[in-house]
């Protein structure tokens, strides 16, 4: 009887996925790398805004100052621009809502109840509105996206 050799466990390239400790370590490294990638660029901007003097190759400013903040806040063109930004943003949001919400498949009502279903049947073109397409993009369940067919 040919002794069947016990199959050698194949060495897989993906062993580390099944090892909880390795997985935790890699996840931690990944989270740290991502935090650096996302956070540090923003941090450099903050540092620059408080820098009085920062010549290369110093890693942090050699002099700190609020001078640039003062300069920005004293400049009427900048404060006007800020005011304008904070006016335009809510106005645009409001206008977009006024135009887009009635055209969304549920007509502004939430979720796919039977009433929203009849409504979206009533005007076939609403199903092509961007909001509905993103919503069905975000849900792979056929039940939700079919409310639009």
């Amino acid at each position: 009887m040919a002794a069947q050799a016990p199959a050698m466990p194949a060495i897989r390239l993906t062993w580390w996925i099944d090892d909880p400790r390795m997985r935790r370590l890699l996840l931690r490294l990944f989270a740290a790398a991502l935090a650096v990638f996302i956070g540090i660029p923003l941090l450099t901007l903050v540092l620059w805004s408080f820098a009085g003097e920062w010549f290369w190759p110093n890693l942090i400013p050699t002099q700190w100052s609020l001078r640039w903040w003062q300069e920005v806040l004293d400049n009427p063109r900048v404060t006007n621009a800020m005011f304008l930004s904070f006016t335009i943003a809510p106005v645009v949001t409001l206008l977009t809502a006024v135009v887009a919400i009635p055209a969304s498949p549920s007509g502004g009502r939430c979720c796919s109840s039977s009433s929203s279903r009849t409504l979206s049947h009533g005007s076939g073109s609403t199903c092509r509105s961007p909001s509905s397409t993103t919503r069905s993009a975000l849900s792979t369940r056929t039940g939700e996206s079919s409310s639009c067919t």
Binding site: V99, A100, P102, A103, G107, L119, G122, S123, S129
Partner: peptide, 11 residues
């Protein structure tokens, strides 16, 4: 259907 048309009209 008519109501739907009115709702889509602005956009």
């Amino acid at each position: 259907r008519a109501a739907g048309l009115v709702l889509v009209l602005p956009s």
